[in-house]
Amino acid sequence: MRAVARTGLVAAATALVGAVAAAPSGAQAPTAASPGAQAWTAAPAAGRPYAYLEGPAGSVLQDTLSLTNPGARPLTVRLGGEGAPVSFAARTVTVPARTRADVPFAVTVTADTPPGEHRGAVRATAAGREVRVDLRLRVSGPRLAALTVEDVRVDTATGALRYTLVNRGTTVLAPHLAVHAEGVLGTVLDRPGRPLPLTLRPGERATRTEPWPDPPALDSVTVRLTATADGATPATARAEASFASGPALAGATGLLLAAAGGGYAVRRRGRSRTQRASAGANT
């Protein structure tokens, strides 16, 4: 198959029904209502088992669907696509009796479509039945898996970690995330990598929140988020945060005051003993 310019789709519209092949006039074709009547068909042109298109992202690819009406009456067929952006010059086509109509269609490959194999279908519906024609699309171009973690923030009131994942490559990614946090006295959070419930298309961003229900009450921490995906280099981002809840501050202040008061009492007792010893030596 070949990539065509978007103007090719306009040209296809002017040739919606072409290459019409009528059956010989002497042929006795069964009607749709008679027993054993041959059903209408929809298939890729040239007798292929499926429609195959190949081209780069951002292009318009064209193929042809053959509709065959073996009956004695005209057949009205409704056309549509599934799983791919399929365009027809007209969504409804009337095929004369004992005739084959070749109907052009086009698939627009959007600029953000990742390289690789993609599947879809062309649907034709008429006379109470539907025929699906498999559509296989191969998007050319280099495959690059690249993922970044950005805008990491720590909500010190709740402990929630907010961050943004960005797909910087050309393939669809299924990210995993690991979380690690170090405090003054050691590790305070360590979650191994686990899959996230999302996929990212090329160029797509996703802002998420990672809960931390039991953050430290009084500590200064460094949080590190590491995101991975198949084929991509691990991406890491950090954020600093200081936790200081009211009760923890009050407790720490009390300990400091108690420690200071104890030291003062020790010093007072020490001075008293020194004074008594000096007085005894002078008598």
Rank of each mutant, 00 (worst) to 15 (best):
V188Y: 11
G186H: 09
H180D: 13
L177E: 11
G186N: 10
R205A: 15
A178L: 14
A206M: 00
V188S: 08
A174C: 00
L198K: 01
E182P: 00
A206H: 04
L196C: 06
H180T: 15
E204F: 02
L200C: 01
L177C: 11
L185C: 00
A181H: 04
P195A: 06
R205V: 11
T171V: 15
T199V: 04
V179T: 13
R191S: 04
L196E: 02
A181S: 06
G203V: 05
L177S: 10
P202N: 03
A174N: 09
T171A: 15
E204C: 01
R201T: 09
L200K: 03
E204N: 05
P175E: 12
A174H: 11
R194K: 12
P192S: 13
L198E: 00
A206L: 04
P192L: 14
T171C: 10
A178I: 14
P175G: 10
P192C: 04
L200I: 07
A178E: 12
P197L: 10
L173A: 03
R194P: 00
V172W: 12
G183I: 07
P192T: 01
G169V: 01
P195D: 04
D190N: 14
T170C: 08
P202D: 01
G203C: 05
G183E: 14
T170D: 12
A174K: 10
L200E: 08
R201M: 01
R201G: 03
E182V: 10
D190W: 05
V188I: 09
G183M: 03
P192Q: 05
R194Y: 02
P197G: 04
P175K: 09
R194C: 00
R168G: 02
D190G: 01
L198F: 06
R194D: 12
G203S: 09
A178Y: 12
T207P: 00
R168N: 10
L185E: 14
H176F: 13
A181Q: 04
L196K: 05
P197R: 07
T187G: 00
E204A: 07
H176V: 00
P195I: 03
L189V: 07
V184Q: 14
V184G: 06
V172K: 13
V188L: 10
L198A: 02
T187C: 06
R191E: 15
R168I: 01
H180R: 15
T171W: 08
R191L: 15
T187I: 11
R205Y: 10
L173T: 06
R168A: 03
T170V: 07
G169K: 07
P202V: 06
T171N: 08
L185V: 00
P175H: 12
H180Q: 15
R191M: 10
D190S: 03
R201L: 04
G203R: 06
L196S: 05
N167G: 01
H180C: 07
V188D: 05
G169I: 12
H180P: 00
V184R: 15
L177V: 12
P197C: 08
L177N: 13
R191I: 12
P202K: 06
T170Q: 09
V184N: 14
L189K: 05
L173Y: 13
R194M: 09
G169D: 14
T170A: 14
N167L: 04
V172G: 14
E204L: 03
A174W: 01
L173W: 15
A181Y: 11
G169H: 14
V172F: 11
G169M: 08
T199D: 11
A181F: 13
R201Y: 03
L200H: 04
V184T: 12
A181G: 14
P175W: 13
V188W: 11
T199W: 00
